[in-house]
Design a protein around this nucleic acid. Structure first.
Length: 654
RNA sequence: GCUGCUGUAGCUCAGUGGUAGAGCACUCCCUUGGUAAGGGAGAGGUCGACAGUUCAAUCCUGUCCAGCAGCACCA
């Protein structure tokens, strides 16, 4: 009990820098009330020295305090976490016997994992959502209680909540076991929560139900996870749902079909059938990268698809990745494997003849076709497949050359990304794992070299401690696309192990034999995946130099057919990818169709243009057209279609 | 691989215990039209595969295959 004499004061520093004194303990709500009625009404939580707390938490020491309202950056997290609790109550009231496990806020929403034998159906989701709206309507207060650990365990076990009991057992002994009540219902939870369920509002929606392993481990039981999305209000919810629809329109599987780029079918699961247009895009991209590599001092090779098991045993892949390797039996005892990666093959080329230190660094590139038997559930369009092509290269160099080569690679990579329309690049730096090959001294040098490279490249990077490969540290390059999604594409890995295992060496200045270091590197990663990402990034509207079909020459009447063919030929001769549309259709129809097909340029010719040897040029998405003399139009288009290499990307038709 | 859902015409999707429909696309005819759908006619399906229940299965049941979502995996 406190007496008047014992009342202490706390000094509260508000975000505007002002300091107010209160009798201790003071709650966030009391502070808000002392500032203004409106703020007290809008307050949903409080931040004490940067930590989110309930509005009713007593503040007993001097602190920096921020009142959190719905406009605060942290509000969405609170709303979503509360939504998870409200959903859990709804589920348990509708489906008694269902166990609750965990239910956090996530990007765009929340989920809760439930243990229940019967699967939830889409109908159930509707019912749950309806019940949630009732619970929100009841506006029960969230009340925090701290329980004795053993009592809490007994309580949850008595209720048959074995997952919750397990969670409590695993909580560190130093931590309070807190429970939040909302009316009749309660849940083990660290908090904080908003003052009452009504604060959740109606800006939420349940999205889907899916399986998820208890604690993310595939050896554990499969739980049922219900995902929801939650926002400050219904308007924000609607905007989010709209954005989801827009993202769906970019789906590369859909655009791949609509734009006639590729298809997939049952008889070749995990492999892509590239159609003419898709493969044109592929070649354009491949030739662009090929030119960049050639200009950066790489050589290009091509290595076998089927390689004897012996080589994979020697490289160590057989032991580690055998499950994911496709094998084929030759007529005798031999077992051949489809190569899952290119490095061992590149070492074989390296080892032909004797390499001198004068030959290093040796940058060996391959558009290497690889096969990996990926788990069926991981396949996804052309993004995750079983047959793919890496823009792979291995740089054989001396330890002293690692830094310079890494810097040069980062420069090349950034420049390629920029040309392809990606400027938002970040890096993950994975350093030495617990079990690893090579001495600490070697690791020190490798990590330092990579760090120096990444800092020289001026890229922001985050550490990924202990996540390096067993053979060396690595950088992973992450691109952010047009709608804010991240894609891990490029990589740079330092490898001291494979040269050793496969006995690669060079003769040094001293006349003795030494081990080269291998830098594994890729810029795009996989052609398939990168093209999938490009499709989604550009929503199919590729920059002119990449567009598989750059222009369509379309006639207005067939009196212009002859001239149109001439126009198409001129463009084709100038290196433009062009089609001729002389169908007996109205120009409106043709414009609509080719616009939907996302053809960047329409070259329209009617009787007038035929007479004047002109064309009407219309750009995708544009409203107007520009009438140009034929020669001028060809020159303009050729200039605009120039690839970032400066010339048209060299392209061989076959 | 795991959990759930889905599989009907080239595409998007309706539908039924008694051997199937729409729109778009396709073919043909009419139309020669100036920048996002001109009109008409026609053709097109072993209802994912295989078993089972039934007088009868595209529909009900089971197994398998594939796709989708999520989880797990991703040298």
């Amino acid at each position: 009990m406190q007496t008047a004499e014992q009342i202490q004061k706390v000094a509260v520093t508000l975000p505007d820098g002002s300091v107010r004194d209160y009798d201790a303990p003071v709650t966030g709500l009391q502070i808000a009330e002392s500032i203004g009625k409106r703020l007290a009404k809008d307050a949903i939580a409080v931040k004490v020295d940067g930590d989110l707390r309930d509005l009713t938490t007593g503040i007993t020491a001097d602190a920096a305090v921020e009142i959190v309202t719905r406009d605060h950056v942290d509000a969405l997290g609170l709303i979503r976490h509360d939504a998870a609790h409200v959903m859990a109550e709804a589920v348990q009231s509708l489906y008694p016997g269902t166990q609750v496990t965990i239910g956090p806020a996530i990007a765009n929403g929340f989920y809760y994992d439930f243990a229940r034998d019967e699967p939830f159906t889409p109908d159930d989701l509707e019912k749950i959502e309806a019940r949630m709206r009732e619970i929100v309507g009841r506006d029960a207060r969230f009340e925090r209680e701290v329980w004795d650990r053993d009592e809490a365990i007994r309580f949850f076990e008595d209720r048959g909540e074995k997952y919750k009991a397990e969670l409590i057992r695993d909580l560190p002994g130093t931590e309070d076991i807190s429970v939040y009540r909302q009316g009749e219902w309660l849940d083990l939870c660290r908090g904080p929560h908003m003052p009452s369920t009504g604060r959740l509002g109606q800006g939420f929606k349940l999205m889907k139900v899916a399986g998820a392993y208890w604690r993310g481990d595939h050896r554990n039981a499969m739980l049922q996870r219900i995902y929801g999305t939650a926002w400050r209000d219904e308007k924000e919810l609607k905007a989010h749902l709209h954005q989801l629809e827009e993202a769906e329109k970019r789906d590369h599987r859909r655009l791949g079909r609509e734009m006639d780029l590729f298809h997939l079918q049952e008889e070749a699961v995990g492999s892509v059938f590239w159609h003419d247009k898709g493969y044109t895009l592929w070649r354009t991209l491949e030739n662009y990268v090929r030119s960049r590599l050639q200009r950066s001092g790489y050589i290009e090779v091509k290595t076998p698809q089927l390689i004897d098991r012996a080589l994979w045993v020697a490289s160590g892949h057989w032991e580690k990745f055998r499950e994911a390797m496709f094998t084929a039996n030759a007529d005798d005892e031999k077992v051949l494997a489809l190569k899952p990666m290119n490095c061992p093959a590149h070492v074989q080329i390296y080892k032909q003849g004797i390499t001198s230190y004068r030959d290093l660094p040796l940058r060996m590139a391959e558009f290497g076709s690889c096969h990996r038997n990926e788990p069926s559930g991981s396949l996804h369009g052309i993004m995750r497949v079983r047959a793919f092509t890496q823009d792979d290269a291995h740089i054989f160099c001396t330890p002293d050359q690692i830094t310079a080569e890494s810097i040069a690679f980062c420069d090349l990579l950034l420049s390629v990304y920029k040309d392809l329309g990606f400027t938002d690049v970040s890096v993950k730096f994975s350093d030495r794992p617990a079990t690893r090959a090579g001495t600490d001294d070697v690791w020190d040098r490798a990590e330092a070299a990579l760090r120096e490279a990444i800092e020289a490249a001026g890229l922001p990077y985050t550490m990924n401690p202990g996540e390096g490969a067993f053979y060396g540290p690595k950088l992973e390059f992450v691109l952010r696309d047009a709608i804010g999604r991240d894609w891990q594409c490029g990589t740079l890995q330092v490898d001291f192990v494979l040269p050793e295992r496969l006995d690669a060496e060079y003769v040094g200045e001293d006349g003795a034999r030494h081990r080269p270091v291998m830098l594994h590197r890729a810029i795009l990663g996989s052609m398939e995946r990168f093209i999938g990402m490009l499709i989604e990034h550009y929503a199919g509207k590729f920059p002119l130099w990449l567009a598989p079909l750059q222009a369509v020459v379309a006639t207005i009447t067939n009196e212009a057919d002859g001239y149109a063919a001439e126009v198409a030929n001129e463009l084709r001769r100038a290196g433009i990818r062009v089609e001729l549309d002389t169908r007996n259709e109205k120009i409106n129809f043709k414009v609509r169709e080719h616009s939907l097909a996302k053809v960047p340029l329409m070259v329209v010719v009617g009787k007038r243009e035929a007479e004047e040897r002109a064309v009407a040029l219309r750009r995708l998405g544009g409203k107007d057209q520009e009438v140009l003399a034929l020669d001028a139009a060809v020159n303009t288009i050729v200039a605009e279609a120039r690839s970032p290499l400066g010339d048209l990307a060299p392209e061989s038709p076959f």
